[in-house]
Design a protein around this nucleic acid. Structure first.
Lengths: 227, 227
DNA sequence: AATAATTTTTAGATTTGTCTAAAAGTTAGA
DNA sequence: TCTAACTTTTAGACAAATCTAAAAATTATT
């Protein structure tokens, strides 16, 4: 009946594409088990869904091997990421949500199907390149902005950096950062690193001194600054 | 989490509630056939859905009689109307969509479930009382603003009115109005009424003179102005 | 009141997305 | 290499939402 691309795609199918994109980072293979874990569902359900997405030519699939996104599937996944991150910017900048509150809502908004809506939203927001968590927003052609970033844990003593992103998105982590004034754009200088547990003492611009566990410093992205 | 009720409600169920609200205008009975027509589906499907909505106590229902919204169902329907109309304001005022382009997109956006989102959006938009078509936006308590409006066709010769709403929402009608500069807020004076076909000649503020068919004047809401 | 026309409901099938349990295939260990 | 451990797929069921066809109930007509 239908020869190819223009079968409509359900929100559930879209979520699978996002999960596969996340696992494969755009290219490479995703296993049934990995997808099941990411989607919080059973491997059996994933097997079923793989057949459906394969039939729609959104993924390539051979039994017992993993799956990979087709060009079309990858474009769709990137579109979803674009929508999600643009909506997050809207929620934080225009509706004044906190950065730990926006994920769930953006998760719904990203499935609204209207190309014009997203292009208008992008324009309205001033074509932002990064979302409230510092993640890059792909442009309309699917290109992600790049940035020279390292984990805070990679800085040496006396180096200075600007917080540009988070590597973990849990509410607990984001709320912790808020409490510590560790927001995007904050400038910090590493004072000392404790060999014992890998924790580090840092100083903010307002001279506040904080000790951060290695877990924290391994989940914060910073841009090195010349001293 | 989200607002009050027990069982979660699907977008489809929400659309049925809206249809029933529209047919019954909030109170009264809706027939299976009328709902089927409004939803563009078969009476058999409506029968099934009636059972589901009844089980969830969103509608009252006795076999072979019509259907009416329960208090809970009515609140939900009004919430959906609130969401829909607020999103329409957003699309027109912030994203610069034309008033004939917004219905479909708002139809999707209205199903996003987050009370906080809607209250923030309302605030962001300045708590508008009417949507881009002049339809009233219920407040958070479900109260619709009222307004002394009449159909343009009810005006007599030499009376003056301000356009405050449309009684038909078709793209064709809205685009016709745009072309004629018959936008919300436009002030017009009835010059003469032709008995022959019920058409009327009106004059706009910029002295443009137009002849409107009775079909047009019967689908435009105006507020009378003292001369 | 009896029949015709209409409305509403039921019956049975289909699609999507899910589940559990079990079978089949692959990989790793002794 | 042969079995143990695992991953993946199939089989069979279920709920939501829909459909067509047919039966049941109501309303209208003569």
């Amino acid at each position: 009946m239908d020869s190819g691309s223009h079968n409509s795609i359900s929100p559930t199918e879209e979520n699978y594409l996002k999960a596969i994109f996340k696992i494969t980072a755009g290219a490479g293979l995703a296993s049934t088990n990995a997808i099941a874990q990411e989607m919080e569902t059973s491997p059996a359900s994933v097997s079923d869904m793989i057949k459906r997405l394969s039939r729609k030519h959104l993924i390539d699939y051979e039994k017992w091997k993993g799956v990979s996104l087709t060009k079309e599937g990858r474009i769709l996944a990137i579109t979803l990421i674009r929508r999600h991150r643009l909506w997050e910017v809207f929620l934080v900048e225009k509706l004044h949500f906190a950065w730990d509150e926006v994920h769930e809502i953006a998760e719904q908004l990203e499935h609204i199907a209207s190309e014009k809506l997203i292009e208008r939203l992008d324009e309205f927001l001033g074509t932002p390149k990064f979302d409230p968590h510092g993640d890059p927003i792909p442009d309309a052609e699917g290109i992600f902005a790049k940035r020279k970033q390292v984990l805070l844990s990679e800085l040496n003593a006396l180096e200075t950096g600007v917080i540009v992103g988070v590597h973990e998105h849990s509410t607990a982590f984001l709320q912790y950062l808020d409490r510590m004034d560790l927001v995007l754009g904050a400038v910090l200088k590493v004072q000392e690193i404790f060999e014992y547990d890998g924790s580090m003492r840092i100083e903010l611009e307002n001279k506040t001194s904080l000790v951060l566990s290695s877990k924290v410093s391994q989940h914060l992205f910073v841009q090195r600054q010349k001293p």
